[in-house]
């Protein structure tokens, strides 16, 4: 008997289960701290690793031009950072023991770079910029002064380009 009574009561309770809706909106927030590290970087690209000058008659071709180099510069630096690109030769043009003074090597440039004369003692500025950025497709064309005084030979020197982004 008792069991029957409570079964009925339980059934009634089940039917009368009521959920009262609460209309207020619930909100939860979380914060996420984001950090990004941007370090100073310098990337220099030359279109060729070598430049050559063909033999020529000094009277007809007093200055021998080489195929232009394309110079690409990419840097990341401080907002007011001074970016510099310099060149320095390891010595004179040499053929065995015969030298041609490296100062006979000069260059002209397109926009973004500066013309100059090669040195083996002090880095020569080829370009300078302020701050980060890309400077692409800049042109540098070397020329070698052609003189009757040069000894016959095949001359070579190594030029080092240095891009600095502080």
């Amino acid at each position: 008997m008792t069991k029957a009574v409570w079964s009925a009561a339980a059934a009634a309770a089940t039917v009368l289960f009521v959920a009262s809706p609460v209309l207020a909106q619930s909100v939860d927030t979380k914060t996420l701290n984001v950090s990004a590290t941007v370090s100073a970087r310098a990337k220099l690209t030359l279109s060729a690793a070598s430049v050559s000058f063909a033999d020529a008659d000094p009277d007809l071709t007093p200055s021998i031009a080489a195929t232009p180099l394309t110079v690409d510069v990419k840097t990341r630096t401080g907002n007011a950072g001074n970016v510099t690109l310099t060149v320095l030769a390891d010595g004179d043009l040499m053929s065995g023991s015969d030298p041609i003074a490296i100062s006979n090597l000069t260059w002209t440039t397109g926009a973004g770079l500066s013309a100059g004369t090669m040195s083996k003692t002090a880095a020569v500025t080829l370009g300078s910029w302020t701050g980060s950025g890309n400077h692409n497709n800049m042109s540098q064309t070397y020329a070698l002064a052609n003189s009757w005084t040069y000894a016959v030979g095949s001359y070579a020197a190594v030029v080092t380009y240095t891009l600095t982004a502080p």
Binding site: K30, T31, N33, N79, S132, N134
Partner: peptide, 17 residues
């Protein structure tokens, strides 16, 4: 490449409603 070097920060707020 155009970013100035540095350590950059920001705070994001996620909101679930």
């Amino acid at each position: 490449w155009t970013y100035a070097s540095g350590t950059y920060t920001a705070t994001l707020t996620y909101t679930l409603s």
